[in-house]
């Protein structure tokens, strides 16, 4: 099944080229040019992973990451940045980022990280479903 990916970056030329390459690798890619647009997209649909630029006009990637994780703690977020300071990297991990990659990045590395993120999300979702079933069975006393 194709991984459902949301790619977020304010550089339109970057979004266009990377999304086309990811689609050619079998992924189902949506794009957002701002953090706010990304938050709206996450409200409307489900994604296996979000690839998020750290520095964007308006809301930055770290703040967007915080809100995304609040909305869906299981969401896998990979940050992509021109440069990250040690402080930013630590903060990103604290806020629940799965990974932080530096631009320009190798598409095969990114694709591998996305597949791992997608597998992790599936595991979390299935664990949650299993937990729900267990709770139902226990509460009903069957």
């Amino acid at each position: 099944m194709a991984e459902k990916i949301l790619l977020v970056d304010d550089e339109a030329d970057f979004l266009e080229a990377l999304s086309e390459r990811m689609r050619a690798r079998g992924m189902d890619v949506s794009t957002s040019v701002s953090a706010q647009q990304a938050l709206d997209a996450v409200d409307e649909g489900t994604f296996d992973a979000v690839v998020l630029d750290l520095m964007m006009p308006g809301m930055d990637g770290l703040e967007a990451l915080r809100i995304l994780k609040e909305k869906d703690p299981k969401l896998q977020v990979i940050l992509l940045t021109g440069h990250a300071t040690v402080q930013q990297s630590v903060e990103a991990m604290k806020r629940g980022a799965r990974d932080l990659l530096e631009k320009p990045t190798d598409i095969e590395t990114l694709a591998k990280k996305i597949k791992e993120a997608s597998a992790e999300r599936m595991l979390l979702v299935s664990e949650e479903a299993e937990e729900k079933i267990k709770n139902i069975l226990t509460s009903k006393g069957w």
Binding site: E11, D13, F14, A17, L18, E20, R21, M55, G82, H83, E102, K103, P104, T105, I107
Partner: peptide, 16 residues
């Protein structure tokens, strides 16, 4: 940072 963005776009277009 801005130059990195330029390189990232060139990288993706060369990859395409």
């Amino acid at each position: 940072h801005e130059l990195k963005n330029v390189l990232a776009i060139l990288n993706e277009n060369a990859g395409l």
